[in-house]
Amino acid sequence: MTTPSARDLPEDTTGDTAVTAAALALGDDALVLSHRLGEWAGNAPVLEEEVALANIALDLLGQARVLLSMAGDEDELAFLREERAFRNLQLVEQPNGDFAHTIARQLFFSAHQYRLYAELAAGDGPFAPLAAKAVKEVDYHRDHAEQWTLRLGDGTEESHTRMQRAVDALWRYTGEMFQPVEGVDVDWTGLETAWLEWTTQVLRRATLAVPDGPRTGAWTAGAGRQGLHTEPFGRMLAEMQHLHRSHPGASW
């Protein structure tokens, strides 16, 4: 079990700080999104989706455990860091909102994560083994999000309106996904081009408008990689870390 010591970046826990920083960034994305999806347990619109979102959360949690363990002690990193020490994208910390919001977040993130992992899996860097394993899981997540985007976008007037609202609301968080992460050796520009192309065709098939708002630059969000997070993230962390902090060193 853990001792409450690591409150900031564990910069000296491994020899390679670039790999550590990269493992934190990718690990935090998976951990935070996993927690958000877990919040649907008991609240999902239908039983099948309850199970689906919990299973996707479980896949992400497994990925987070591997990645955070590359950066230090997984429990300390998950439960004892302060908000400013988390390196996840602001997109993944956004509240679940309605089901359409959750699906839009899944669509944007899993499409990116899928390509990122595919590229890492093809290389021979430190993330290749995990990426090769996880890319198959993420492929299924992406497919799940795509099917729901089509169903909601091209569904009823109400579902279309809600899906469009979700896509519009989260669009400004998507540019941050392609900020290069030190220690992650991929073609970020190529990833962004492929993401935009794929996402655009899914939205069009779903009869949704591709938002014309900016994804990077002024009036967009995105400094999660630098440790700056949106307001709901602090509340999420408080809930996620409460038990561990209240009972340091506790075990079953």
């Binding site: 099948e48 996707i56 479980l58 299924y140």
Partner: peptide, 26 residues
Amino acid sequence: LSRFSSTACKALRRCLACREPFDHFK
């Protein structure tokens, strides 16, 4: 019936002939 089932590795299906639901190891 459902792309995810009791565990991450399974999906839930139903037989149209005997009407029994069953798990499919994806």
